[in-house]
């Protein structure tokens, strides 16, 4: 798993590639928690290069989303595809989170 971050106005765009499994999920969560600690409030998680996510990854996403909510922040997603899209759908995460087709669409709405 690799994480790249860039700032677009008030939005922290987090591109995550590779696999978020039970081994890598804690790193993902820690990385995003650090950004929350730095004062970031709006996160766009870009998943066009994410190949795989398991329930451990969803657990981390939910944990981060809950913290953000208490700070009046939010987390949205873009470019889900393949197995990641399926996992979001089956888990109901596709309904509780806002998902955009492109980064551009997401940034317009954030």
């Amino acid at each position: 798993m690799e994480i790249n971050k860039k700032k677009e106005k008030d939005v922290l765009v987090v591109s995550v590639s590779g696999r978020i499994d039970a081994v890598t999920a804690p790193d993902f969560e820690k990385n995003l928690s650090e950004s929350i600690g730095d004062g970031e409030k709006t996160f766009l998680i870009k998943m066009n290069q994410l190949e795989y996510i398991s329930s451990a990854g969803l657990r981390s996403i939910l944990a981060i989303a809950k913290v953000l909510k208490t700070r009046e922040g939010k987390m949205v997603f873009s470019e889900l595809h393949g197995p990641v899209k399926d996992v979001f759908k089956i888990s109901g995460f596709g309904s509780i989170f806002t998902i955009y087709d492109t980064e551009e669409d997401a940034l317009k709405q954030c």
Partner: peptide, 22 residues
């Protein structure tokens, strides 16, 4: 409960649910 909101949502049981579904 896969329809719960972010606040109410618990993650437990999701992995096993995937196995049953897939």
């Amino acid at each position: 409960d896969i329809s719960a909101s972010i606040d109410e949502r618990h993650i437990g049981g999701l992995g096993i649910y995937f196995v049953k579904q897939l």
